[in-house]
Design a protein around this nucleic acid. Structure first.
Lengths: 118, 118
DNA sequence: GCGTAGCACAACCAAACAGTTGTGCAATGG
DNA sequence: CCATTGCACAACTGTTTGGTTGTGCTACGC
């Protein structure tokens, strides 16, 4: 259940589109911030709005995108609505990206170092 | 060198922007296809163009984006230019995305199954 | 040199998208 | 009931961006 077949290669077109679409969902700073905030636990739209300092409509809109991608879950709770992380895998992705960024910085440092040494 | 500090939380704004920017680079099907093709080894613009069935200018443009993100490397080789994967980490990312997609499909199947059983 | 092949750059167009404004709607408290 | 709170939907706007077209530039073969 947790181990999968290797990813096909070359990637079939429909899969390519799905992958790109997934990345696109994560390509907005506000959505990253929302996910990062939800890492502390579920929250209402109002709470997220205050945490990010954005308009209520904008927050709702981005939450809608995340919900469509099934990255968050939506639960009506009285007069309020609580959003929560539905796919913790997104954090793994972010960590890998951060790792990649650090790698690039390290390489840049190395290049600059040799540059100076030379 | 290969193990890093944990990712800070909450994510500082500049880092959020970097992460989102990185994801944005990967949010285009054509760029995913280019990376997938380069997985077989380095290639010239013309080769990539023929492999993807796209225009030369468009391929060059997307390669430029990938190059700016340091995901590919560019090497002049005679009258031709060879592009190659510079950051193999992108494939890890793609695999994680694929894994997430499969998880979602599995869950969907499970839901449908209980739906039928009920 | 001269024509050609390989590639990148700039200008343009159309589509997608983020953000705001305005509004509708459901649930709660008085 | 009625006003208020919490949220989502729709329309609009400015910006971004993917793709095309046109062009310049560099390296090679003749």
């Amino acid at each position: 259940m947790t181990d999968f077949d290797p990813v096909p290669h070359p990637l079939p077109d429909p899969l390519v589109d799905l992958i790109a679409q997934r990345f696109r969902v994560l390509s907005e700073p506000m959505r990253i911030k929302l996910l990062d905030r939800l890492r502390d636990g579920d929250a209402s739209v109002t709470e997220l709005q205050e945490a990010l300092g954005a308009s209520q409509q904008n927050v709702s809109k981005h939450l809608g995108v995340l919900l469509s991608a099934a990255m968050v879950s939506r639960t009506k709770h009285g007069t309020s609505v609580r959003y929560a992380i539905a796919d913790p895998g997104v954090f793994t992705l972010c960590e890998h990206v951060c790792g990649g960024l650090r790698r690039q910085l390290s390489e840049l440092d190395a290049v600059l170092a040799t540059e100076v040494t030379a």
